[in-house]
Design a protein around this nucleic acid. Structure first.
Lengths: 103, 103
DNA sequence: GTTATGTGTAATAAATATATTACATGTGTA
DNA sequence: TACACATGTAATATATTTATTACACATAAC
């Protein structure tokens, strides 16, 4: 049994979700974890581009990754979805806004 | 008694909230509605810039506006917060991703 | 050794988003 | 008339994000 982590940075999450590719990536990782090259083929985007997007998602804590070694000995970076449940309300936004750097 | 509208476009909301100014604008409008020039002074940003940000917030349905006439006869555009309560989960993101244009 | 697969990153180009400046209009008051 | 304060927008500059291309390295199979 897993539970969503409560410590997401709202600005990072907003930045992460503000992109159609990254929404599709999260959708794709729901069914199962996947490694970068395969995920790039599935989503039909280039691997460097996918890596850039995955980095943003990982920084926001929405996905995580680790190195695994395949049956035939190749190192593969596998990404998995981090469960999350974030509520967006005016109060939550205000709370996040208060934490922003002054200028 | 007011209730959050259920029909927010997730992409538009994400785009709207992905900016520190716009988070502060929402925070500021919580306590009370305000007209553009005053809000610009309160937040210490230029009026054209504020207008640009308000436009994005309005497109996302997070604020609304109307023209009011002040006591001394000046037309003022008053913005008010639209209440919202949006839940961000992998399933919700996937649901939004499925509605995105194919390419 | 060559081919196919995986990893990683750096340099660059293109597209968007952000921010400023300048100007236009209208109203009420000194 | 001139001033203060409100509206609106257009043109431009700057910054950031997105996307591509080109590398480098490693392992397994032919």
């Amino acid at each position: 049994m897993s539970s969503p982590k409560p410590t997401h940075s709202l600005p990072l999450v907003m930045a992460a979700l503000d992109n159609p590719h990254r929404m599709r990536i999260l959708a794709a990782l729901r069914s199962s974890s996947n490694y970068v090259s395969q995920l790039a083929r599935d989503l039909e985007i280039s691997r460097p581009l996918l890596i850039m997007h995955l980095k943003k998602l990982e920084e926001a804590g929405l996905v995580s990754s680790g190195l695994e070694v395949s049956a035939d000995g190749k190192a593969m970076r596998v990404y998995q979805l981090e469960d999350f449940d974030i509520r967006l309300t005016p109060d939550e936004v205000a709370r996040a806004a208060a934490k922003l750097p002054k200028d």
